[in-house]
Every structure is written in structure tokens, then in C-alpha cells.
């Protein structure tokens, strides 16, 4: 078993989801190789050499790889893919963009959003927004998988010191030009790795009311999430969306405020340890998954709850 993990990073730090993909890889083999493709990635490489279970860090450097676009990444991976039995990436927008392109070039099927590794060729994944689970056997010589980060705990750091092996970079071209990233800047914890998430929906009614969510989140050192309705209404940017087609989260505590709980939203948060729901509609489906629910007006409840938490801190 030779397992390759494709690291997601920004040339400075590795994304936490990569560490979850490493954990998934370690279910398949006692150690894994990690590919770090980018431009001036030394800090990323140094960090990854210390991750438990990593035996080698394959370093590929080129200005064409700076933004890890799917086309040059595929050109890099295609010639080396057959050295591995499994190629994994996190099921983030990065992994989902890249791995199907690579799989098609290798003439193999890609298996998306793996939540459980049953054996070397058999995997479990959610379908229909998580309303069914599919057990799928791959018949291909190379298994190309994206793995759902919430299903695998991030690999830990240890005294490990993996070798960094520079690998040859073929001549690359980027038919798509990177123009820039309009990054969402937030001082709050990152949504997919936060212990606590405060999430708001259509019930907030307008963008002017969104600070109610922010103040409560800040009392709890929480990340902020949103339903599709809240994003479509322009309360928050797209990358706050939790759900089937947004981010999948599994924090210790998820507080759903003014979110009715469409199946598409539940698909993204129902693996949270504790769910608290606040909604004025007693029949809202969110109450079917919530551990604790309260039927009431969020505009009365949230300010009081926030105040009580603030008072408690003093």
C-alpha cells in the first residue's frame, strides 16, 4: 500500500483539512507520503515533516503551482500517480476541484467525500445530502479519494522528522490564469475547525440584525455559520454557508438561530455533538435534530442570552 496525500496549503501554512486526510491515509497504511506542490513552500514542508505517520514529503516547486490550479497540478501528478495505490485529498473546494480532473486523466473513477474507509478498496460516502450512505468498492488500480475532514480527526504532531524529497517538475502550463482571491477576513475561529459555531438563517430578517449573531459568537469564541437563505439574502459571504453544497461542520456545539432546517442545511451540521435550536416555528425541522430547542422570538432571546454570558464572564 503506497498512499499519497495531496496537501492543501497557501505556501505558508498547511490547511487543517490536510491533517484529516493524513489520518484517513493512515487507516490504509502505516505511513503516508505527502505532496506539497506550490511556490516557496519551505514553511509548509517543515511543518508537515513533523506530522505523525508522514514518512516522506514530496516537494514540487514552480511559479505555475503557486495557486495550485487544477490544470498544472494534474500535469504534475499524472506521471507519478501510478507509483501509488491511493491518492487522497481533503473534500474541500481545493480537493473537489482537483481530484476528478486527475482521475479522468488516469481513466479511473474518483470517489467523493469518503466518510469511512472499510478496506483498501471499499469506502462509505453520503449521498442525497446525507440521507443515505453508499458503500462503494473501487475496481481501479489507483484509488483516488476525497475525504470528508469532519469524519477524520486531524493527525497530530510528534517527534517525527520525515524526509523532504524534491521531485522533478515537468514543463507546466496554466490555461487558466489566476487573478486573485477576495478573501473573507475574520478574526473568529475558522468555520470547519471551530469547537463552537453560531449559525444564523432567514429568521434574522435583515443584514442589520446580523450583529446579534456576531455578539453571541464572540461571547462563546465561536465561528459564524449561515444557512443558504442568509447567504442568498446577502447577510454574509458565500463561504459561511453550511450544508450539502456549502461547508460540512461537526463542532462540539452548534447553535442554529432562525434556521428552519431544510435537509440541505441539516446535511452540513447534523454530525455536531450538541445542537441547540432557536426558532419561532414549533414545527421547524431543525427541532428534529436539536438536542435542546426553544420556541420563541430570537430578537428577545438572543440579546438576553448574550447579556447573561457577558455578565457571567465578569
Amino acid at each position: 500500500m503506497r498512499v499519497l496525500i495531496i496537501a492543501e496549503h497557501d505556501n505558508k501554512t498547511v490547511k487543517l483539512a490536510t491533517l484529516s486526510a493524513i489520518t484517513a491515509g493512515l487507516v490504509l497504511a502505516p505511513s503516508v507520503s505527502v505532496l506539497i506542490a506550490g511556490d516557496k513552500t519551505d514553511p509548509v514542508c517543515t511543518f508537515v515533516t513533523k506530522v505523525t505517520g508522514v514518512s516522506s514529503v514530496l516537494k514540487a516547486e514552480s511559479p505555475h503551482l503557486a495557486h495550485q490550479l487544477a490544470e498544472p497540478m494534474t500535469q504534475l501528478l499524472e506521471p507519478i500517480a501510478s507509483q501509488f495505490t491511493h491518492i487522497l485529498a481533503p473534500a474541500t473546494t481545493f480537493g473537489k476541484n482537483l481530484l476528478p480532473r486527475l482521475a479522468a486523466k488516469l481513466d479511473v473513477m474518483q470517489i467523493s467525500d469518503v466518510t469511512k474507509i472499510i478496506s483498501a478498496d471499499t469506502f462509505e460516502r453520503p449521498i442525497y445530502a446525507g440521507n443515505a450512505l453508499e458503500t462503494l468498492q473501487s475496481l481501479d488500480p489507483v484509488k483516488v479519494l476525497t475525504v470528508r475532514p469532519t469524519a477524520f480527526a486531524p493527525a497530530s504532531l510528534s517527534q517525527n522528522s520525515a524526509l523532504v524529497e524534491p521531485i522533478p517538475v515537468p514543463s507546466l502550463s496554466s490555461p487558466a490564469q489566476y487573478q486573485g482571491l477576495e478573501a473573507t477576513i475574520s478574526a473568529r475561529p475558522e468555520l470547519t475547525s471551530a469547537r463552537v459555531i453560531v449559525s444564523g438563517g432567514r429568521g434574522l430578517q435583515s443584514k442589520e440584525n446580523w450583529p446579534l449573531i456576531e455578539e453571541l459568537a464572540d461571547c462563546l469564541n465561536a465561528a459564524i455559520g449561515a444557512s443558504r437563505a442568509a447567504v442568498d439574502a446577502g447577510f454574509v459571504p458565500n463561504d459561511y454557508q453550511v450544508g450539502q453544497t456549502g461547508k460540512v461542520v461537526a463542532p462540539e456545539l452548534y447553535i442554529a438561530i432562525g434556521i428552519s432546517g431544510a435537509i440541505q442545511h441539516l446535511a452540513g451540521m447534523k454530525d455536531s455533538t450538541i445542537i441547540i435550536a432557536i426558532n419561532k416555528d414549533p414545527d421547524a425541522p431543525i427541532f428534529q435534530v436539536a438536542n435542546y430547542g426553544i420556541v420563541g422570538d430570537l430578537f428577545e432571546i438572543i440579546p438576553q442570552l448574550t447579556k447573561a454570558l457577558k455578565d457571567n464572564r465578569r
Binding site: H67, T93, F94, Q179, L181, E182, T184, T192, P237
Partner: peptide, 10 residues
């Protein structure tokens, strides 16, 4: 629409 915001390609 990427995880960190909006990425633009030409």
C-alpha cells in the same frame, strides 16, 4: 466560490 472566499480566474 472557494473555502476562503471568492477566487477569480481568466
Amino acid at each position: 466560490e472557494v473555502d476562503g472566499g471568492l477566487e477569480t480566474l481568466i
